[in-house]
């Protein structure tokens, strides 16, 4: 990954990152030290703290998302992505199950999204 020119390597982002607090190394590790190898762009809680505190306005989130698109995804992400492609939803449920959940909680019925929705919106076939 190319180190952003705007970054002054101050480390403020590392200070606020919750992943660092539990022993993981997110993209902020690389920003504060471009030579660091022990980090992963997939380790992030998407809390936007680094983005918020960066004194030079580096688009840390955008940089991370861009990089993710070039790297193999962890299983959890891959599975969830494929599910959205297939069903339009990040978690699995059938219309029948959803009807039951809604009725059990006294909530109005909800229709699931159309089957070909994601295919049209993302220009992708469900098998991709």
């Amino acid at each position: 990954m190319k180190h952003p020119a705007a970054c002054i390597q101050c480390g403020d982002c590392v200070e606020v990152c919750p992943v660092e607090k539990v022993g993981g190394h997110a993209i902020v590790t690389f920003l504060a030290d471009p030579d660091a190898a022990d980090y992963s762009v997939w380790l992030c809680t998407i809390c936007w703290r680094c983005h918020q505190v960066c004194p030079t306005g580096v688009d840390i989130y955008g940089l991370m998302m861009e990089r993710r698109r070039h790297e193999a995804a962890p299983g959890g992400y891959q599975t969830a992505f494929e599910r959205v492609l297939r069903s339009g939803l990040a978690l699995p449920i059938s219309q029948e199950e959803l009807d039951q959940v809604r009725a059990a909680w006294g909530l109005e019925p909800v229709e699931l999204p159309p089957a070909d929705l994601v295919h049209i919106l993302l220009h992708k076939s469900p098998s991709e």
Binding site: M65, Y77, V84, L121, L122
Partner: peptide, 21 residues
């Protein structure tokens, strides 16, 4: 009704097209 996944962060991690969701 017929709402879909918002796309973030899962779809966003794979394609900039997430925004269409």
């Amino acid at each position: 009704q017929e709402a879909a996944c918002c796309g973030a962060p899962v779809v966003e991690s794979f394609t900039a097209d997430w925004v269409h969701l």
